[in-house]
Design a protein around this nucleic acid. Sequence first.
DNA 1: CGAATGCATTTTGTCAACAATTAACATTTG
DNA 2: CAAATGTTAATTGTTGACAAAATGCATTCG
Lengths: 265, 265
Amino acid sequence: MNQLTHPIGARRETLAGEVRSEIERRILAGEIQSGEKLNELALANSMHVSRGTVREAIRSLIDSGLIVTIANRGAFVRRLTVEEIRNLYDLRGAIFAMACAATARHMARTPDEELMSALDRNLTDMRAAFAGDDRPAYYELNIAFHDMLLRGAQNPKAKGVYDGLVKEMHLFRRRGLSVAMNIARSISEHEAIVEAVRQGDAAAARLAALCHIEAGLERFVRTLADDRALDTNVTAAGSPVDGARNDPLAAPAGGSVGRGDADAP
Amino acid sequence: MNQLTHPIGARRETLAGEVRSEIERRILAGEIQSGEKLNELALANSMHVSRGTVREAIRSLIDSGLIVTIANRGAFVRRLTVEEIRNLYDLRGAIFAMACAATARHMARTPDEELMSALDRNLTDMRAAFAGDDRPAYYELNIAFHDMLLRGAQNPKAKGVYDGLVKEMHLFRRRGLSVAMNIARSISEHEAIVEAVRQGDAAAARLAALCHIEAGLERFVRTLADDRALDTNVTAAGSPVDGARNDPLAAPAGGSVGRGDADAP
DNA sequence: CGAATGCATTTTGTCAACAATTAACATTTG
DNA sequence: CAAATGTTAATTGTTGACAAAATGCATTCG
């Protein structure tokens, strides 16, 4: 009953919330690029909304890590360094491993046949996608796989943080980087995780997840290294990503809990 | 140069930022209690600031998990259930374990004598605090210990999330609950972590951290159980914390990334 | 010719007022 | 008397306006 979300012209959530979602969408879709400045007035006009509402939306987006603000200068779409993306990788992996352990723990107490069969189905589909060389399908299934385990952990906060990290990592668009990953091995790693979960063995699940994460990171770093080799000049250990340095945002620290330190660039 | 933060009447960060800090402080200090409603006008008057500024500060606090908002109803200080605090515990532990592993990894590559000696000093002081039965000192040292390892991981984002979790967990003030923990064992667990870090053994550091976390969780649960036994009625598996149920906020889910689901209570 | 200074424009920070929604209370009605 | 309904007060959502700061550009001075 009353399942309609937008009856006629009325809105269900607040206007600022919708604006927030729209800004987030534009950033993740790449319509607003990394490093770009968010002009409050321009955004307000483009959405036919007052500037204050846009401002409120921007403020609520700061903690997500997608944008960074400098006092009296404005808000900018965050630009990630290679080091930061690596840190995000680590963090995401830690949460995933915890989630796998928690899911296994729950499975031991109260078996969830539905989840197990969903995981099995995912594995089957994934093998099929691999056999048919269907990259998009694999990509979707991979996301679904991690999502299922995060839900299985029954830890909404962890899932929220995890999803936030995934969004944040989307900011890092380096050319393709779409991965030349070893899908076969990735699938077998998934299988190990599922098996541990099925057994209800939390420690084994965590270990399997850690292996998966570590291997994934290694693949990522290798891809990055290959990409780096294509660059013009390969300085020994210099940060290889910043092309133009005409903007004053080097992503001031974590920017998560405290509001962005408005110190000098 | 220019190290003064508040020269005379001028402010360094934005007003909304100061208001945010003040609201956060009041919540963490317990001046605004769990479940309490945040009245925008009242807060604005108490800080001699406009309502819009308070509103902006509140919005920037939503993602921290300290408050929850319901559309057209207002913002409330989050009230944690036992299950949620357990989830936060899990998440915090996962991040801590990752941080220990990362610190060890860094230590293997580029030894940080300063950090190692600081850790050793912390252990020494902790043993002294234990011997002298100085609880407050132990408490501080314990926080400093975890803080050092989080910094050692050189992962600002992880530290930000971790610190946020710690703040969030402060919302859970159950009577004393100040812990009747086994300090001696906790210290020996710390020693194991430090040793693994010194060796630069990431896997061992992670394992030691996980053991520490797991033991800590167990201690916490036991304290909780003891506490629960003191309650009037001990229903089998009912949520034991909610005394009065006259408020419409059962802490709507994670409330982290998406803005608070404004659904029915 | 280049650097520094001053002015105008743009953009952000803050505020106060208006509109819309909710909660509480009084009233009516069965 | 209880449930439903209408009314009023309080609070939130949104907007536009004003003040302060920063950027860009032209001008001036060395």
